[in-house]
């Protein structure tokens, strides 16, 4: 068969020959390299994912069927190649207990209390925060509002506050003789036991979390609002809609996917609540009425070193959050435009 070279009546220049060679080479290994190259590029990310996510996730699940006895360096497996020896040691000394951990948590009063506390904070805080964020976003989106940039920055600023610092400020403000009670008294209202009553101590947490995250969610909602085509409002105006009807029939449905995102991420965030109760209420005071699930898991795992039981708690938390998120996605995502 005639090749390009043999057909050519011209003397082939060296650079052309090099090109033909390269072409011939790439013809000979057509797709072999592609898959491997792809995985090579993925390798750094996969490594990080494996070490810091996949392994802990799987190992936690594994741990939840054991009782942790202490650290160990018992050799599980070794390979002696003559040149070097490879040894795999165990991380911990574990005793298999089956589903015992999961059975225990069914009757663990403190876990139930933590679950209740977290749910209570969630039910009050998330709707409150989303409504507030939406109100701020709508207000900032309104054409007549001036100095939008300044308001937006001020409202979003708390998200950059250091967790410990802002929680400490809340702790100071909410003391019996703190700023908030001082203000209440000065207008003739009774002081509120912000840190010493079960109900009000949870409310303090709600307030703190809302303060910090409302601005963040407002920015997300504002971005969503600015994506609503102006002509839909004009069409609604022509159709006879007043302000509320425009909000109800245009803004909310158009914002639905964004609202859903805000709800789901806020729910997950609140379930992971940890720093605020630890700093403001110490160890869940008063009377464990502010202890959150993550705080309880922390105590179980790293104070009491019941790693197996803490792992089981973690998996229950994951299950609860997953179910809630799925429910929210089902409700919010149904017949969305």
């Amino acid at each position: 068969m005639a090749t390009r070279d043999s057909l050519s009546p011209f003397e082939t220049a060296p650079r052309d020959r090099l090109r033909y060679l390269r072409q011939a080479l790439s013809r000979r290994l057509p797709n072999a390299g592609e898959g491997i190259v792809g995985y090579l590029f993925l390798l750094p990310a996969l490594t990080l994912f494996g070490v810091f996510l996949a392994f802990p996730i799987l190992y936690t699940f594994y741990l939840s069927f054991f009782r942790f006895q202490g650290v160990s360096d018992e050799t599980l497996l070794w390979i002696d190649t003559g040149l070097f020896t490879y040894e795999l040691t165990s991380i911990a000394e574990l005793q298999f207990v089956g589903l015992q951990n999961y059975v225990t948590l069914l009757s663990d009063g403190l876990f139930h209390q933590a679950l209740f506390n977290t749910t209570f904070i969630l039910v009050v805080q998330v709707p409150l925060m989303v409504v507030l964020a939406l109100l701020f976003a709508v207000a900032l989106d309104a054409s007549f509002v001036r100095f939008k940039g300044i308001f937006r920055t001020v409202l979003a600023l708390p998200v950059s506050a250091n967790l410990v610092a802002y929680a400490t400020v809340f702790l100071l403000m909410m003391q019996d003789a703190g700023l908030v009670n001082y203000l209440l008294r000065s207008v003739g209202l009774p002081a509120i036991p912000w840190l010493t009553s079960s109900f009000w101590s949870r409310m303090t947490i709600v307030g703190a979390v809302t303060w910090r995250w409302t601005g963040y969610n407002m920015i997300i909602l504002l971005a969503g609002l600015q994506n609503v085509p102006q002509q839909l409002y004009e069409a609604a105006e022509i159709d006879g809609a007043n302000r509320w009807e425009k909000f109800r029939y245009v803004t909310v449905p158009q914002l639905r996917p964004v609202l859903l995102f805000v709800f789901v991420t806020s729910t997950i965030g609140t379930f992971k609540l940890f720093s605020e109760p630890v700093i403001i209420n110490g160890g869940g005071a008063p009377l464990d009425s502010t202890i959150t699930i993550v705080q309880y898991i922390y105590q179980t795992a790293f104070v009491n070193f019941r790693l197996g039981y803490a792992s089981a708690l973690t998996y229950v938390l994951i299950a609860v959050v997953s179910v809630l998120s799925i429910v929210q996605l089902r409700i919010g995502g149904a017949n969305s435009a």
């Binding site: 085509p229 004009e234 069409a235 029939y249």
Partner: peptide, 14 residues
């Protein structure tokens, strides 16, 4: 008045 917009401006979620 009723208006027909260039890009129709139909309510996408209805």
């Amino acid at each position: 008045v009723a208006m027909v917009f260039q890009n129709y401006a139909l309510y996408p979620h209805m």
